[in-house]
Amino acid sequence: MLIKFDVTNEEGDRLKMQYGQKVASKAFKMAALDAFDLYHKNQELHEVIDSQRTEIRRLRNIIEQARSSAAQLLEKTGQGDLIDG
């Protein structure tokens, strides 16, 4: 199959350097084949980011609850002046 790309010399040179090729057509072929793997890796990383954001929210809630509990405990034990330093 023959596919023609209309690119600048700079774009072709950048791709040749990226893939260590002397011929732009080989570099474009390698880039096209990489696109599949890169797309799937990108999707996986987005899932990791979403999971980590969820975990961060969960941990922030735990920290806030602990902070609130500590403040209530100090208040109930009459040692609120320790917070004020």
Rank of each mutant, 00 (worst) to 15 (best):
L2R: 06
I3R: 03
F5M: 13
F5G: 02
T8L: 12
T8C: 13
D13E: 05
Q18L: 14
G20P: 06
V23M: 02
V23I: 10
S25A: 14
S25T: 14
A27K: 01
A27L: 02
F28C: 04
K29T: 09
M30D: 05
A31C: 06
A31P: 00
L33H: 11
L33T: 08
L33I: 14
D37A: 15
L38N: 15
L38Q: 15
Y39V: 00
Y39D: 04
H40Y: 11
H40A: 04
H40C: 04
N42K: 05
N42H: 12
Q43T: 07
H46W: 14
E47Q: 04
D50F: 09
D50T: 13
R53C: 07
T54H: 08
I56L: 12
L59V: 04
R60S: 13
N61S: 14
I63P: 00
Q65D: 15
A66R: 06
R67P: 00
S68A: 15
S68K: 11
A70V: 07
A71P: 02
A71M: 10
A71D: 07
Q72G: 05
L73R: 10
L73S: 09
E75S: 13
K76A: 15
K76Y: 08
Q79T: 07
G80L: 01
G80I: 07
G80E: 03
L82T: 02
L82A: 02
D84F: 09
G85K: 07
